[in-house]
Design a protein around this nucleic acid. Sequence first.
DNA 1: TACATAAATGTTACCGATAACAGTTTTATT
DNA 2: AATAAAACTGTTATCGGTAACATTTATGTA
Lengths: 315, 315
Amino acid sequence: MATLMDVAKRANVSKMTVSRVINHPDMVTNELKQLVYQAMQELDYHPNLIAKALVNNSTRIVKLCILEDIDTTEPYYMNLMVGIAKTLDLHQYSLQLVTRRNFDIGNCDGYIITGMRKEDLDWIKKLDKPVIMFGENRYGLDYVDTNNKAGTYRMAKLVLERGYEHLVYIGIDSKESFEYSREAGFIQQVQENQMIPELYRFENHSHLAEEFITKHWDEIESNTAFICASDRLAMGIERGIARCGGSIPDDYGVTGFDGVFLSQVASPKITTVKQSIIEMGSACGENLLDKINSKTSQGNLIFEPKISMGGTLRE
Amino acid sequence: MATLMDVAKRANVSKMTVSRVINHPDMVTNELKQLVYQAMQELDYHPNLIAKALVNNSTRIVKLCILEDIDTTEPYYMNLMVGIAKTLDLHQYSLQLVTRRNFDIGNCDGYIITGMRKEDLDWIKKLDKPVIMFGENRYGLDYVDTNNKAGTYRMAKLVLERGYEHLVYIGIDSKESFEYSREAGFIQQVQENQMIPELYRFENHSHLAEEFITKHWDEIESNTAFICASDRLAMGIERGIARCGGSIPDDYGVTGFDGVFLSQVASPKITTVKQSIIEMGSACGENLLDKINSKTSQGNLIFEPKISMGGTLRE
DNA sequence: TACATAAATGTTACCGATAACAGTTTTATT
DNA sequence: AATAAAACTGTTATCGGTAACATTTATGTA
């Protein structure tokens, strides 16, 4: 690999001039700049990031901390990573995937954290490097997330427009902020229509939702739509209804939330609130890099979700 | 952060002695070693990997290249990454996730590549850094994979033991090596039992498998088991049978291959050939790091799969 | 034209580690 | 005890960049 020195010799200038052409081009004559550019081209010069990192006392590593148990990990994390990696690559940073166990090994320039629980707040606040959370929180930590409330709000609206008379919300039984927001969106829409909200909560496993349906099948009225807080739950609801002989979408509607993978492999495909996870990942990356380079933090970034049409709501 | 120099001063020795205590402890007196160790402890010294990387002309980055289209990406890649990351972290390497598009950005010390197609062979062979493939191949590239053939071979055996009389293989319609091996395992078992193998192939989408069942339902005899090349296909088969009113596992058996996520969210849970993807990821990491540090390459590492019991085969 | 000032380029030291060599002390040998 | 060999420790140069300062060259002003 060609070094600064090689380029400098070829262009008959000092290393510093080459360095300046790269980092402070306005401090160099056009004439010399041309010489240097040419030499760089001829030698196919690429700066050595390790050397750069050494002088800057940086690592060029960003850690992605997935605090959730990896066994229950949703496929959408994959997309999140792709989004983050895409951005980081562009800026010549690399992504290190860490979990609770190996969180501390090696240092880095910043963190992207997801799956935080309340107990984690303490140590996260103490981190001495910039942090971006993936997923909304109410502790003042900068985050990137979908507009969860708007997602269920609009979905509930759509469901009503499609003529379903009874709305039931199937939520995730956890105290996380995103869940509160999704519930809030549902409740608001329902109340605006002078209806009484009906909510149930389960751990985020399709079987629990399925079981719920099969157990309460005789109490469930026809023309009911289930607004679910995840595709996973929606899949269970869908299966439960199918098993009990209910007809989707004619007599029952089902909607999910996420739009990654599961909504596609379900049958019929789930009409869901689609989060653009890859873009959100990119945003996490951009946001964090801005912080690292101490430009102004962009604060929270909230993405408007889209509704992705499947076959679980009638026309 | 404390540096070598800080430690050296504290211990009243030269930088070199400290460096030696770390890298060539047998060249230093016990007495000095103690002093240095103590100083390191007191200062909470951790070597600066960037500086190390600079002298060694290394990057401490490993690229994971997922060549498959990310849209169709299976959740098990997540587990693969976790496995790789776990190992790399231990050795203070970091993982960079790349795709076809951003493959070339930045350099690295080695590659882990998955989802290779035949056309990729050329450029992969030309890479000037160590490479480990995830997934078997027949081009002589070192790889880590499950024993695919043994997986279907044993699964078919189990299915026969459970008394299913007709076996049908549902494969993935691709020319990849792992698929040939899975088919071979099935065929061998079937032939050893003097039966005629029956195989069908589809793109790896659950809907295609589901459609296959519903379309050919009247031709499908009772007491048939479907050995599928992926959980995704198995899920489709399962759904198709359910939709047609068939009873699993009493009249029909279904088995999958992978054992990550999908087999769990299906209902009933799929009896599947479980790959220990996390371990395989770790193995990829270990293997690659060995190559990078030019210890002997371990060649191919083949993991024996286990059968994970779900509810899709009768007792 | 002389001199102050600004602009462009070069020199040196340094980031934190290591290899190669140099210098010192210890041990072995006769 | 003298000396060679071995064992240990220190010095210097280096990896590939950049900041800070030093120097040179160009420009402006009286």
